[in-house]
């Protein structure tokens, strides 16, 4: 093996030092890319390339195997949405029923309730959660003392690493019927409140939990974007008499724009996945009406009752709607001249 490598591998690479040497001033990346294309795509036949690259291919094999088994096979398995699937009969022999599962789904009021809950919560969090990491990042960025800033940063990042069970437990201890808030209220002669079981305030509760858990972590990417803004812009603007507020409006926010759009898209694509565990954990306490989202619907309505095909249909609808949302969001981003998560093709 080593002998064949020495024939193919370095041959392509040996041309490179000369190539890069003559074009010292050109930035590294484009040179590398063009050299690659010239050296790898056109000159060497597929067999030689295969011989050179097979160790690389072997390295990707375990990851591919896992993805195929636990991602692609389930996607293919979604065909049971068009069947009346029974685990005792198997996919091959279960009868095909066309779109009837989807028709039932469209007539199922509890499916629509779950969909409406999911979308409401998503829109609510988009308005009340999404801006908070941005504001927090600007606040953190304005701390001039480096050490204070690092300490505050590491503290606000921390809750991101707590599990949802833990976060919900902590909130219960603070705001539940026997929690700290009720305790303090009762000590002062008021009635205790139990925010953990109140369906009317549930949306506020889950948003507060999301903020507590993830707003700090969400600042990381904005802080990096802020750090990438050229400080001379601020200086020049200040010299020209721009106020703090004007600098924020005309330098900081435009600097953050690509990141904001990127995260908005990611958020949209993830919209139908609004914190599954979070709702799963609180559904019993708050009740179905307020806390049923699409995923919990699939779990309770179908997995526990064994209506596999029905659940697969609901899952498929959710997946496809999510895909459509992400594609639309990306199109919009391209329209605004931003990159989005994948490039225009």
């Amino acid at each position: 093996m080593p002998s064949s490598r020495s024939k193919t591998g370095p041959a392509g690479d040996l041309t490179s030092p000369a190539g890069t040497g003559t074009t010292n001033d050109v930035p590294k990346r484009p040179v590398r890319a063009s050299r690659k294309n010239a050296g790898r795509k056109n000159r060497s036949p597929l067999r030689a390339r295969l011989r050179r690259d097979w160790p690389l291919l072997m390295m990707t094999l375990p990851a591919i195997a896992l993805l195929v088994i636990f991602y692609y096979v389930p996607i293919l398995g979604s065909v049971i949405a068009f069947q009346d699937y029974s685990p005792y009969v198997g996919i091959a022999d279960s009868p095909w029923v066309g779109f009837s599962n989807f028709q039932w789904l469209m007539l199922d009021a509890s499916f629509w309730d779950a969909t409406i809950n999911t979308l409401t919560i998503m829109v609510f969090q988009l308005i009340f959660y999404f801006p908070i990491p941005i504001m927090l990042a600007i606040l953190l960025d304005s701390i001039m003392n480096r050490r204070v800033r690092l300490v505050v940063q590491s503290i606000v990042y921390m809750p991101h690493f707590f599990s949802w069970v833990l976060v919900v437990t902590l909130f219960q201890q603070m705001f539940g019927g026997a929690g700290l808030l009720s305790q303090v209220l009762r000590d002062n002669g008021f009635q205790g409140v139990d925010l953990m079981t109140n369906p009317d305030t549930f949306i506020l509760l889950v948003t507060a939990e999301t903020i507590w858990k993830d707003a700090g972590w969400g600042t990381i990417i904005f802080l990096a974007a802020l750090a990438a803004i050229n400080p001379h812009l601020y200086e020049a603007a200040a010299v020209d008499g721009a106020t703090r507020w004007q600098r924020m409006l005309h330098i900081t926010l435009p600097g953050l724009r690509p990141v904001i759009i990127l995260l908005l898209i990611l958020r949209l694509g993830d919209a139908l996945n609004v914190g599954f565990e979070q709702f799963f954990l609180q559904r019993d306490a708050v009740g179905r009406d307020a806390a049923e989202v699409l995923d919990t619907f699939v779990y309770w309505r179908t997995l526990l009752t064994g209506e596999w095909s029905y659940g697969a249909a609901a899952g498929l609808v959710k997946g496809i709607v999510g895909l459509i949302l992400i594609v639309i969001a990306n199109k919009v981003a391209h329209r605004f001249g931003e990159q989005g998560i994948y490039k225009k093709s």
Partner: peptide, 27 residues
């Protein structure tokens, strides 16, 4: 490198589409 693009695409696709809970459970 050989097959670099299709493999990467296979991995990135997992960002876009989430297989349902039921088929995953069945697997």
């Amino acid at each position: 490198s050989v097959l670099h693009r299709p493999i990467l695409f296979m991995i990135l696709l997992t960002f876009l589409f989430v297989p349902g809970m039921i088929p995953s459970y069945l697997v």
